[in-house]
Amino acid sequence: MPTPLDRALQSRNAFLGFAGIITAVAAWTIWGPSDVFPRAGDPVGDPESWTDDELRRWLEARKLYPGSTSTREELMARVEANMRAPRV
């Protein structure tokens, strides 16, 4: 004779409820309002004090993809050439 627990585990409603919860959590994770891995913001301050990674991130954010073999001087030259002049 099956117990109430056996009947609950064999119920289609329990399976569909569980599948619905998993689907809802997956949809929330994919399309939810918050980013799981938020992007780092632009570096601030003087570009001379930025690291190579910050220089590359700044260039990539502006679709000025730096070469993988670019030196720090080349990165600095590209950043300085593409920075907007301050408004007076």
Rank of each mutant, 00 (worst) to 15 (best):
K63M: 04
A61W: 01
L64D: 12
L75W: 04
S70K: 02
W58T: 05
G67I: 06
R84C: 07
T69I: 11
S70I: 00
K63E: 05
T71D: 14
E73I: 12
M76P: 08
R78N: 08
S68N: 09
P66L: 14
S68D: 09
T71G: 15
M76I: 10
A77G: 05
A77F: 04
W58S: 07
L75K: 08
A77R: 11
S70R: 03
A81C: 02
W58C: 03
M76E: 09
R56I: 04
E80L: 11
P66F: 11
N82C: 03
T69R: 15
Y65G: 13
M76C: 10
A81T: 04
L59T: 10
L64I: 13
Y65M: 13
M76K: 12
P66K: 12
G67E: 02
A81P: 07
A77C: 03
T71W: 11
Y65C: 10
R56G: 05
V79F: 05
L64K: 14
R78C: 05
A77I: 02
L75T: 07
S68G: 05
M83H: 04
R62S: 00
A61M: 03
L59R: 14
E73L: 13
R84Y: 07
T69K: 15
L59A: 12
S68E: 09
E80I: 09
S68P: 04
M83L: 13
R56P: 04
R78Q: 09
E73T: 15
R62D: 01
E74S: 10
N82T: 14
N82H: 08
E73C: 10
T71R: 15
L59M: 12
W58N: 09
S70G: 01
E74L: 08
